[in-house]
Design a protein around this nucleic acid. Structure first.
Length: 370
DNA sequence: TCTGGGGTCCTGCGGCGT
DNA sequence: TCTGACGCCGCAGGACCC
């Protein structure tokens, strides 16, 4: 018989802003926005004061500046946020080792084995507040889905506990978009078949969902609405790909500049792979044109590599092939992705050493010919 | 109005070997 | 030698998440 599971989801409120307030306490109570520089940047995080002006994550930073002229803009500082995040997670792991870190600011905890799980979670939130001055929202339920939706329900400083049945009732009138895994596109398709609420999705025929979405996805959508989720809290997350991308301040059509940009990104990607002692078997190019249309091109190497020269030559070839025989159109973004990643120690040294030579001989892309 | 950067997972399709 | 079924794999694109 299955044990009763108690799963918690903890989410730090407006994390980047809170981290900034720790070192800039004079900004407390002010509309603070964390966003990259540049005409095409978006809002990464907005303080709750800024949100009162209608500002939210993913909004164009320029729009945010228009909505709130007194807003204070700060550029994100990833290294510093990771430092704070590590401190938070140190406290979390003192409570339980069964932690699945989802991002710098959120995690699932399997607290089934803890004697007084709710009391312990309250203590954890208090400890984080006291020692790090960070607020967190918590959701607790029988699975990750219920926990996640609960932690979002009463932000900031929320603390919501529900059973699956309780969640089905409490969120019945909400849009299916509230459920993680159902985004704007799926919500729009659901609307078209007359499903506007979670309750309507609960009552919809699974077989009809499967006719429209396929067997697996159809069942998945219905299970989301029913708050059924048997996925486990997994302590280890294996990185499956790494990527670097750039959106240019203005659309770019100069071949030389674009290729130079690819060389720079290849260097970054290569460094990242080497830092984690990894190599990639597949190199991908991402292209976004002035109309915001995105295409990708992949190329699999004969042997995994993390060589910046090899990565850039593949990326440049893919870019040339993309437009050929026409000249390159103006591009908004270029990106390079390394996938099919393996640990360097697992890659046989022989094939590694020969990678360059083999690629040189390979006909399709004719690398290093210029 | 204007849409970043870093990821994961799923689906559909075509090529290929058996 | 040809053909079809089947499964696997690589690739492209889409949707979603923080």
């Amino acid at each position: 018989m299955a044990e009763r599971r108690v799963i918690a989801h903890i989410d730090l409120d407006a994390f980047f802003v809170s981290a900034e307030l720790k070192r800039h306490p004079q900004l407390k109570g002010k509309p603070v926005i964390v966003a990259h520089n540049g005409p095409r940047s978006i809002v990464t995080t907005a303080s709750y004061e800024a949100r009162k002006f209608g500002i939210h994550s993913a909004m164009a930073a320029q729009t945010a500046a228009r909505l709130c002229q007194e807003a204070i803009f700060l550029t994100p500082d990833g290294a510093y946020y990771r430092e704070i995040s590590d401190q938070v997670f140190q406290l979390v792991r003192e409570m339980t080792k069964q932690v699945e870190k989802v991002s710098v600011d959120e995690a699932y905890l399997d607290i089934s084995a803890i004697e007084a799980p709710i009391k312990s979670m309250r203590k954890l939130v208090a400890d984080i507040q006291q020692s790090l001055e960070m607020d967190a929202s918590v959701g607790i339920g029988p699975n990750k889905l219920v926990a996640k939706v609960c932690s979002d329900a009463e932000k900031p400083k929320g603390f919501v506990i529900l059973s699956a049945e309780g969640a089905r009732i409490r969120f019945a009138s909400e849009s299916p978009k509230l459920l993680p895994g159902i985004g704007p596109k799926t919500a729009e398709r659901l609307e078209k078949i007359g499903v506007h609420t979670i309750k309507e999705l609960q009552e919809y025929s699974v077989s009809k969902l499967q006719e429209k979405w396929g067997k697996k996805q159809g069942l998945y959508l219905w299970q989301r609405a029913m708050f059924i989720d048997d996925t486990l809290v997994s302590e280890e997350r294996i990185v499956k790909s790494k990527s670097v991308e750039r959106t240019y301040p203005e659309d770019l059509d100069d071949q030389e500049e674009l290729e130079e940009s690819l060389r720079e990104m290849s260097e970054e990607l290569s460094k990242a792979l080497k830092k984690s002692d990894q190599q990639a078997k597949t190199i991908g190019l991402k292209i976004r044109d002035a109309q915001f249309k995105t295409v990708t091109r992949d190329y699999s190497l004969l042997a995994p590599s993390n060589s910046s020269k090899l990565i850039s030559s593949v990326a440049i070839r893919l870019l040339r092939q993309y437009a050929s025989p026409d000249p390159l159109p103006a591009l908004r973004l270029l990106g390079i992705k390394a996938s099919k990643i393996s640990d360097t120690k697992d890659v046989r040294e022989e094939s590694n050493a020969n990678a360059h030579v083999k690629e040189k001989l390979r006909p399709q892309l004719q690398l290093f010919t210029d």
